[in-house]
Design a protein around this nucleic acid. Sequence first.
DNA 1: GTCTATACTAAGATAGAC
DNA 2: GTCTATCTTAGTATAGAC
Lengths: 206, 206
Amino acid sequence: MTATAPTRPSFKQRQFEAREDAILDAAHELLATKGYDQTTVDEVAAAVGIAKASLYKHFPSKEALATAAMKRMIQRALAFIDGLSPSLSADESLRAVLEWALRLRLAGGLPTLPSSNSALVAALTQDEAYVALVTELTGRLGLWVQFGKALGKLRADLPDEVILLSFYARTCDPAIDFLKRGGSMDDETIVQSMLKLFFDGVRRSA
Amino acid sequence: MTATAPTRPSFKQRQFEAREDAILDAAHELLATKGYDQTTVDEVAAAVGIAKASLYKHFPSKEALATAAMKRMIQRALAFIDGLSPSLSADESLRAVLEWALRLRLAGGLPTLPSSNSALVAALTQDEAYVALVTELTGRLGLWVQFGKALGKLRADLPDEVILLSFYARTCDPAIDFLKRGGSMDDETIVQSMLKLFFDGVRRSA
DNA sequence: GTCTATACTAAGATAGAC
DNA sequence: GTCTATCTTAGTATAGAC
């Protein structure tokens, strides 16, 4: 090896990754705000401040870009879960994750996991890495659901599937956006209301 | 008046309206299945079995077509509400309407009230007739929410706004589609699960 | 690897004959 | 009022110079 041989990621390499991160940040925000269909590649490029063609050097297609952003999102969720105190009970853990997701969403930072009829869904389900991440996340949440039921904290008369899918659905509930847009409630009140709703429902317990 | 003067809607007139209804039916189904953005005017025309240009003689734009379908939908909801037994209590009425909407959705017959970031929303909120219908519907549901609270049937610590918007959101909950696609639950089980979820939450009452 | 300029395509909308 | 054929635009993607 010569003296000039770099032993670390080169300068250019780091710059490249920084740029890529900036692109993902912009895509992330636009996806969260406008959704996949309404977001154009031009907008993303403009938000980053680069030309569209440059963006395509980093990501081969709009679908690939969105998929990358979604993967990063799920990794963050997994990281948050890893950081949770192990002393929390199953239902407390679920609540903590939902609370985190709701806050993130209200801050404009959660690209809505796509509802079933978006063009993005097809691309995502074909991306093995994405599917693996979702499987990982669902596995962890699913364990909590099972534990929660076993400990008598969660209703046993609801299928695990229902609880899990509804958990996901609450993170992209359109009611949140309308409440925020209405402007009559602050973020904290919205979060607490949605948590109450998910865990206790609208009916007053006797 | 001559002997040939029609005293009723003419034949052609009735045929025209029948055609228009057929167009709305097709649009309705496609909107429910694929959503506004993913539905093309070509598809609607093909489903009816007419040329696209003919469709445009009936509706001046895709937005106008979708708006008309949505208005018809809300009118049906109002009609269903009118037909409800007055002896039902407020919370029972809310449950009945939600149950009706969920069944309709599972049968593929409920165009998802648009989540906040669809191109359709802008068009809808500018259509006075549509806004009036939504106001009417929200008014009736809102009364039930107030009564339900007053009678101690609904939780008083949730703002009316939250209950109402979540009610709407449950009719287009993506969890429903995923559960149906999963195939492991029949429609009736899905409906009952979603009702339980909305009214009682996931937490087991002590 | 970034840019400007352009090709390609899908989809909303219209023209004009009948 | 229905059709076939066409216009137009918006948006994904690429070519080619630097």
